[in-house]
């Protein structure tokens, strides 16, 4: 796969280009350049480490929505087996920005629900850039109730710039669809583990984000609105997005500090998109451990703890 570099990765991209060039030259001539290449590769590694050791919040926000970042459908075959996608909200439509279905996790039946962004232009449009409509949240609701009925744990995967702000979405009750999920998820009698894999913005993220555990990939973000949205409201200019990203404390590291995220899954050097298999296997391990913990609890304890957790947010207890 040809890597796509972000602005702040340009020095790395330049070195990589040099290596590629040397390789081309090497093919045509007899000069041995392996040494030179491995030296440069070592340099790339050091450079990447140094750039990624001091990322700003805004740079993390850009990584969270990197065009090559793994999406839910990339993760599913790496984390689960026997996936059967289930479609539709049984009311209006099938929202392709929200994917759901049953699968097996370490052999056990589970329910999977999450946002899906597209990769190429056509797919992006079909998936509506991961912005779900009311029917997406209602499909999620239907599948969650199904999971509760058959005692399946629920895994949700969050990666959205927000719920879709469209005319039809308003007509069909975007607010009501999200609100209902918040209420239902607070009481579902089955373990719910939410993972933020990319960007988690606004009610669109929270609409499938209430649960017993919140996990975040290292370069994922979670906030009330996108940095651009926050900047245009508070700074009156979307160009102030880097300031807004910093002010909102939206990175995984900040959320762990705020006791909102439970665990961070470290990403491979350069971000999840460099090694999807590696991040998936780390994620799988954490999901396995967390689920095992939750499954030792009785349903009553599970629900009490979930409620306590929700109630603590924004109180002195959360700071403890």
């Amino acid at each position: 796969m040809h890597l796509n570099y972000l602005d702040f990765e340009q020095p790395i991209a330049e070195l990589q280009a040099k290596i590629d060039e040397l390789r081309l030259v090497g093919k045509d001539s007899e000069i041995n350049i392996t040494d030179e290449i491995s030296k440069l590769e070592g340099k790339i590694d050091d450079l990447t480490k140094s750039i990624f050791s001091k990322l700003s919040d805004w740079q993390v926000a850009q990584l969270a929505r990197h065009p090559q970042r793994p999406h839910l459908l990339d993760y599913i075959p790496l984390l689960f087996t026997d996936f059967d996608e289930l479609h539709g909200d049984r009311v209006f439509a099938d929202d392709k920005a929200m994917v759901g279905g049953t699968a097996r996790f370490n052999g056990e039946p589970v329910m999977i629900i999450g946002h899906q962004k597209g990769r190429d232009t056509k797919e992006k449009a079909r998936r509506n850039f991961g912005m779900a409509s009311p029917e997406g949240y209602r499909k999620a609701e239907r599948l969650m109730l199904l999971a509760e009925k058959f005692k399946m744990p629920i895994f949700t995967f969050i990666d959205t710039p927000g719920a879709y702000p469209g005319i039809g979405a308003e007509e069909r009750g975007q607010s009501e669809a999200i609100a209902k999920n918040l209420l239902i998820m607070s009481q579902l009698k089955t373990p719910i583990i939410c993972t933020i894999t990319g960007e988690g913005c606004s009610g669109g993220a929270l609409g499938i984000g209430v649960g017993d555990r919140l996990l975040m990939l290292q370069y994922s973000t979670y906030s009330v609105i996108s940095p651009e949205g926050c900047a245009s409201i508070l700074w009156k200019s979307a160009a102030k997005a880097p300031d807004a990203a910093a002010a909102m404390n939206m990175t995984a590291q900040h959320l762990l500090g705020l006791n909102i995220a439970d665990e961070i899954i470290p990403e491979p050097l350069g971000g999840a998109h460099r090694h999807p298999q590696e991040i998936a296997s780390r994620l799988k391990q954490v999901l396995t451990e967390q689920l095992a913990q939750l499954q030792t609890m009785s349903t009553d304890t599970l629900l009490q703890q979930r409620y306590k957790r929700l109630r603590s947010i924004g109180t002195a207890e959360q700071n403890a």
Binding site: L206, I260, L310
Partner: peptide, 22 residues
């Protein structure tokens, strides 16, 4: 939501909804 409380404000949506469920 109150922008200046960022994710804490977002999660008040879940908190109030959970209270209503009770």
């Amino acid at each position: 939501a109150r922008m200046q409380e960022a994710v804490i404000s977002l999660l008040q949506m879940a908190k109030t909804s959970a209270a209503l469920a009770q």
